[in-house]
Design a protein around this nucleic acid. Structure first.
Lengths: 110, 110
DNA sequence: GCTATATTCAACCTGTAGGTTAATTAACCG
DNA sequence: CGGTTAATTAACCTACAGGTTGAATATAGC
């Protein structure tokens, strides 16, 4: 399966997206990640394997724990793919300009 | 299945992404869309049904043809989801600024 | 070395995704 | 009406996704 398909497939599951959202707040172990879900640990373990295979998480080993860390590189690739279609929902470039200016203003004021 | 999962699942197939890419150039009939692929027409028909169910295409009826048209609204939703993770691959806002300035320059020169 | 904790592996089940071929529906055209 | 073209439906097959339970592995700590 090609890289982009693997990424999209990994993202096409709410459990896995929830795991990513959790990891956006920092590293976590398998048990910690599994806690919110009404499913067995091996099930979560499988989800993590899917995410790892898609390059969306990396895992290190510390004692008997395998903490997971988010790796957003594949998401960057997805935005690259999406960029090709941006013109279809942004009906005018001017509106995009407005949006960008707003972003820059926000930064200047922070 | 939730909306976002449906969208990601629809995008997780290279044939379907190729169909979307083709539709970015304008409307096309089923037979036209099927032409580049080494698969049967019913198979393509199924792919189109998946895309339609995900809201990525809309279909009208003209005589015996069912022309398909791209609808990028779900893609906008995807970028919304991705935005939450942007900070993980943009290590500095300045780099984003560079990118945006480059975009705007491109527009001025075109 | 033994036991507790963290995680994975193995075997299994069920549902569905993606493909096939053959038959069917729908519309046009002479 | 009869034939042709466009597309879908139906029935089927195979592979795999996502879940389960039970056993195995790895490490820490007493």
């Amino acid at each position: 399966m090609d890289h982009l398909s693997t990424t999209f497939a990994a993202l096409a599951d709410p459990t896995r997206r929830a795991i990513l959202a959790r990891l956006a707040d920092g590293e976590a172990t398998v048990t910690e990640l599994a806690e919110p879900f009404a499913m067995s640990l091996p099930a979560v373990s499988k989800h993590l394997k899917v995410l790892e295979h898609a390059g969306l998480i990396t895992r290190t080993r510390t004692a008997q724990w395998r903490p997971c860390r988010l790796d957003a590189a594949p998401l960057k690739e997805v935005t690259g793919w999406l960029a090709e279609y941006r013109r279809f929902w942004e009906d005018s470039f001017d509106r995009m300009d407005d949006h960008l200016r707003e972003l820059q203003n926000k930064r200047k004021n922070s």
